[in-house]
Each structure stands twice: as structure tokens, then as C-alpha cells.
Amino acid sequence: MNRYSSPLNFRRLVITLTLTWLGLFVLLPHLMVILTSVLTPDAEHLVIWPITFDNYLKVFEPIYAGVFWNSLLMSGITTLVCLLIGYPFAYLLANMSPTMRVVLLFLMVVPFWTNSLIRIYAIKMILGKKGIVNSFLMFTGVIDSPVQLIYTDFAVIIGLVYILLPFMVLPLIASFAKLDRSLIEVGKDLGASPFYRFIYILLPLTAPGIIAGCLIVFLPAMGMFYVADILGGAKSLLLGNVIKNQFLVVRDWPFGSAFSVFLILLMAGLLIIYNKANNYIQHKGGLDDENL
């Protein structure tokens, strides 16, 4: 590309910097996690040589398999709730004037500036025995005595949805913005009911956004140990709690890494599905008769 080399050689500098940084802090560390997951834990040196698959077998022990299952379930519910709120929300936002849309999107980002841990703590205050929610319910006479909201799976889901909802909304808005509105009009003119228009036009055309949103919500939700720590009870552990515990408390790095490798594999699997769906939409998307 570059036909003239300058004395400082800017081009080489940029490429070297890029490759060094990403190699050193992304590629190498990911490979090292995989390596660590098959090493033997050691109290003194953290890890020692003999390669073993015991760490992976340990993941399937009932206690840990239980946490894994619980995490999947909590993440699944969180993703579903985010989608159910985020989809109509993104749809309404996408239909607004550009100025209004920018303002509302900006308002979604503002809470990020008070660290998410502090906001989760605020949710704990809201859901507490004397918090706003209980006071409101008692004031309106729905309940007579405070209900237990905090330290439950319900509270954890509220917290997870709170943190992750913006990440569901953003790709969905992008998806709606790309949507060719005339397709819906065509559906209308041809006499399709709103339900049919939703199932056969809107849903398939926004599928990439839906999958992208679910992807960005589902996996991170399993790692949010602080949400489970602050809002959850003793039993609502997430995968993140186990990994954090293994790395920072028990110091069994190989076992913690083995758990993470499962997450990485799950991510790889979901990305493949995402790619397939994206290709499918692009090849079959919207414009051929079958979809209309």
C-alpha cells in the first residue's frame, strides 16, 4: 500500500504496536488460561507441570455442576427479561425523531458513570425491608408486612437485568434502524394481521440484532459475581462467584481456568450460531417471496 517510506516509518510502528499489544495482552493470555486449565494446582507455585484433566472432571462434581446449571438458568431468565423489555423499547426508540432518539440513548448511558457496583448497592437499599418497594406496597395496602425481596434469586435477576438491559437495547436499535420499513407496509397492504407481520417480517429481519443482544447479555450475566454477592442469598451463586473464589481465595487456578474454558467454549458455540443466523438472514432475508 505504502509506496513511500518515511524516515520514522510510521506504518511499521503502527503495525508493530498493534500486533505486540494484542499478542501480549489478548492472544497469549487466552492461550495461557487454556494451558493453566490442564496443569496441576500447587500451593506454593500456583501451578506445576504434570498435565492433568482432573480439573475438568471436578467441574462435573454435583456442587459445581449445580452452580453451573443455576448460572445458566439465571442467565437465561435475565436474557429473556432483557429481550422482553428491550425489544419493544428499542422498537419505540427507533421510531422516534433522531434528536429524541439520541437524547434517550444518552440517558441510558448516564447511569454508567456511577460505577455499577454502587448502583447495585442502591438497588439493595431499594429492595430492603424498609426500602422504597416495601414501603410503597405497604402504603398502597397490597401487603401488611414487609416481604423478603433482598437476598433472593428474584433480587439477583433484578440486578442483572438492570446492569445488562442497555447492552440488549443497543444492538436491537441498530437492527431496527437498518430495517426496510416498506416491507412492513407491503405486509399491511397485502392484508397481513399485526401478529403475522410481527412473526413473518419484523422478527426475521431483526433476528441478527436479537441474537447479538442475547449474546452480549447471556454470557456476561454468568460472570457478575458482585450482583450475586450483594443481592443474592447463600444459594444464588453464579459461575463468576466460583471462578473468583478459585482465583482469589482458594487459589486453585487450574480449576478456575477449567471453568472459564467452559465459558469460552460456550461463547464460541454461540458465535457460530450467530454467524449462521446472520448468513441465513443475508441470503434469505426479507426480499424473496417466501419470507413475505
Partner: peptide, 27 residues
């Protein structure tokens, strides 16, 4: 490879990135 690494960086859940960073810093 550069693009894939950036993609991995974006899609990896925080908890996975957290341990990759911890491991490389110790190493």
C-alpha cells in the same frame, strides 16, 4: 488475526478477560 483478537476481546465476558489479565500479569 488482529481483527479476530479484537472481536474476541469485545465478546469475551468480563470474568474471562479478568482471569486472562491476572494470569498474564503474574506470568
Amino acid at each position: 488475526t488482529t481483527s479476530s483478537m479484537l472481536f474476541i476481546l469485545m465478546m469475551s465476558p468480563d470474568i474471562v478477560l479478568a482471569i486472562t489479565f491476572l494470569i498474564i500479569f503474574i506470568a
